[in-house]
Amino acid sequence: MMYVKAFLVGGIICIIAQILIDKTKITPARILVTLVGLGVLSVAVGISDKLVQFAGAGFTTPIFGFGIALGNGVKKAIAEKGWLGALGGGLTATSIGIGAVIFLAVLIALFAKSKDKS
């Protein structure tokens, strides 16, 4: 059941983004930034846990989930470390993903290059 809900919720988030791309002049970068912001906001207003309980990866796999992780990270870090946690909590919580992306990117760039698309 969770898989069905993840599929539907994740799919619908992508449809909303697709409609914005096709129908408006809003650039994809702005749409992604907005989704991240909404993720943080969902933590701030206290609904993120309920959302994730409901559809799991349907909410965490889209870039919206990056926002949830940032928001939760800050909250947790402030509880544990006090005010400095406000600065580092978001990055700490998302550091595994960002670290993985940077490392993989540089590793791949050692071996692979862009293919001729012309």
């Binding site: 994809p28 293919k115 001729d116 012309s118």
Partner: peptide, 19 residues
């Protein structure tokens, strides 16, 4: 002009998956 040099300068990297 070259598609690849123009893409990387004006738009996106060649392997970027945008529409």
């Amino acid at each position: 002009s070259h598609f690849c040099s123009a893409e990387r300068q004006f738009r996106y990297p060649l392997e970027y998956g945008g529409q």
